[in-house]
Design a binder for these strands. Structure first.
Length: 220
DNA sequence: CTCCCGATAT
DNA sequence: ATATCAGGAG
């Protein structure tokens, strides 16, 4: 990834200008809520997650509530987000550990968040950045992975390896915002099925633009 | 690598 | 019909 180091500054500068207004699309008020919402958001649109979390958070107000939840009931309440059995188990077991080992409070360190069942680096990074404004890494989800590959920022497929690549040349002060800028750009422009390179503000910095649109004029 | 899994766009 | 959506565990 040699060209990546040269282009990353321009990419970030332009994305920041275009997406500075929008932050996470997940609705939340507490660290526990962003943790649960992020678990629910796996392979599901944030839109569908936002539909069910108001009633969910009215019923379950803290980690102890989730820890003692009736599993079948919780499964039904989150069924529409898919993977509902796995997600219910993760939410309950993670909440139990928060109650047992962290005094009912969502931990603020990557090391501790990774001890929660159902929480890996992507979810931990989202909780750290959204709830605590800390960046111990860069959250790599399906959007970030796809854009990192298209932009020539990483050739890896494993999210943890993509994250390592990004951490090696994305300035640390940008880590906090890098994920949501790429997610927003991925949702609006650089979509999985139909990347809209003609209206992309960083197409001139993207080695994939000509692949998708052979006759494209690069001059944003 | 496979499995988990409903909702939506194409 | 099929791909994709703020992934993680076995």
């Amino acid at each position: 990834m040699k060209g990546a180091k040269k282009r990353i500054g321009g990419i970030i500068k332009i994305l920041r200008k275009n997406y500075s207004h929008s932050r996470t699309a997940l609705q939340f008020e507490t660290p526990l809520q962003i943790l649960v919402s992020t678990i629910l958001s796996a392979q599901c649109t944030d839109e569908k997650v936002n539909e069910i979390i108001p009633s969910l958070f009215r019923k379950y107000r803290n980690a102890k509530d989730f820890a003692s939840a009736d599993k079948e009931k919780l499964e039904e309440e989150i069924r529409s987000t898919g993977f509902f059995r796995n997600k219910a188990r993760s939410i309950i077991n993670a909440s139990k550990k928060i109650v047992d080992d962290f005094e009912g409070v969502v931990p603020e360190k990557m090391e501790d968040l990774l001890k929660l069942p159902g929480v890996a680096r992507k979810t931990a990074n989202i909780v750290l950045s959204s709830a605590f404004r800390k960046a111990e890494g860069i959250a790599v989800d399906t959007h970030v992975r796809r854009l990192a590959q298209r932009l020539g920022l990483s050739k890896e497929k494993d999210p943890d390896k993509v994250e390592r690549d990004l951490m090696s040349f994305v300035p640390k002060k940008e880590w906090l915002d890098f994920n949501y800028m790429l997610v927003n750009h991925g949702r609006k422009v650089c979509q999985a099925r139909k990347p809209n390179c003609p209206s992309c503000v960083i197409s001139h910095l993207c080695p994939s633009a000509e692949d998708f649109y052979p006759d494209i004029k690069l001059n944003p």
